Simulated scan of single mutants.
Amino acid sequence: MKTAASAADLADIEDLRRQSGLEFMQAILSGERAGPPIGYAMGFALDHVEDGLVRFTGTPHFQTLNPMGGVHGGWYGTLLDSAMACAVMTKVPCGSTYTTLEYKVNITRALPADTEIVATGTVVHAGRSTGVATGEIRGAKDGRLYATGSTTCLIMALPVV
């Protein structure tokens, strides 16, 4: 997967009109479209895409630590928001997009720095105007649960320009 190096690499409104959300996410996974820079900055990348399900893999490194040496809660939140919302994106029709309305994170145990993880987002509802998804972060090697989450996203038609 390649990462966007500038705003010019990100999708514009016309790109979004031509593809369903699933096609858009598959294009990022295949490298046809650049992925968002947040993944590079935070140490995670898109790993799998299917209808209603998205998986990211990653590793929190030193720059994600809080002052006490633990992985910052914002890292869990960013990763789960990405996985859950991108799962909702796979259900968005051509000519529409989504935005996160709210999300919740439950950290179940401390995640040591440099631990490889898998974050999965799964859609539980996708309607005309809202999508709801759940997510979890697990250790890639041992399957230990580190965090869970839930989100509600607004699904909206792209504006006419």
Rank of each mutant, 00 (worst) to 15 (best):
R33H: 05
E32H: 14
L145Q: 13
D81Y: 02
S82D: 04
G74E: 08
T78C: 13
M84Y: 01
H48A: 14
A34E: 04
A45F: 13
G31C: 06
E50Y: 10
V71Y: 00
L154F: 06
G31H: 06
F24I: 10
A140V: 07
M84G: 03
G95R: 05
G131I: 13
Q63E: 14
A7Q: 15
P60M: 04
A7W: 14
P93F: 09
E50S: 15
Q19F: 02
D9L: 03
M156A: 11
V49E: 08
I107F: 06
Q26I: 03
G74C: 06
V49L: 08
A5D: 11
G131F: 08
V71P: 00
Q63H: 14
H61W: 14
L65K: 01
T59P: 01
F56W: 02
T148M: 09
M42P: 02
A8Q: 12
A5R: 09
V123I: 06
V105S: 07
T130W: 00
S129R: 12
Y103N: 02
M156S: 09
Y103D: 01
G127H: 02
P67R: 12
L16G: 07
E102I: 04
G52E: 01
V71T: 03
M68H: 15
I107W: 04
D114W: 08
A157I: 09
K141V: 12
Q63L: 15
K104A: 06
R55Q: 13
A157F: 06
Y103R: 02
L145Y: 09
S150L: 12
K141D: 14
L10Q: 09
G31V: 06
Q26V: 04
Y146I: 02
R128E: 15
G70C: 13
Y98P: 05
R33C: 03
Q26Y: 01
I28W: 01
L22I: 07
K104N: 05
D15M: 08
G52H: 00
R55N: 10
E116R: 12
K141E: 15
A87R: 00
A7L: 15
S30R: 07
I117N: 04
K2I: 15
L22H: 08
S30G: 13
G121N: 01
L29H: 07
V132I: 12
G135I: 00
R128S: 15
M68K: 15
R138E: 07
A110P: 04
V105I: 11
C86D: 13
A8L: 13
A45I: 12
F24W: 09
T99D: 02
T148D: 05
K104C: 05
D15L: 09
D51N: 15
S6D: 11
I155K: 01
F56C: 02
R144N: 10
K91E: 06
C94G: 15
H125P: 08
Q26R: 07
P36G: 10
C86L: 14
D9V: 03
I137Q: 01
A140Y: 01
I155M: 08
P159K: 12
M84H: 03
L22F: 09
A157S: 12
E32Y: 11
L154Q: 09
N66I: 15
I137P: 00
T78E: 09
H48W: 14
G69T: 02
G31Q: 06
A85I: 00
R55K: 13
A8S: 13
T120S: 09
A113R: 03
A133Q: 04
T152R: 08
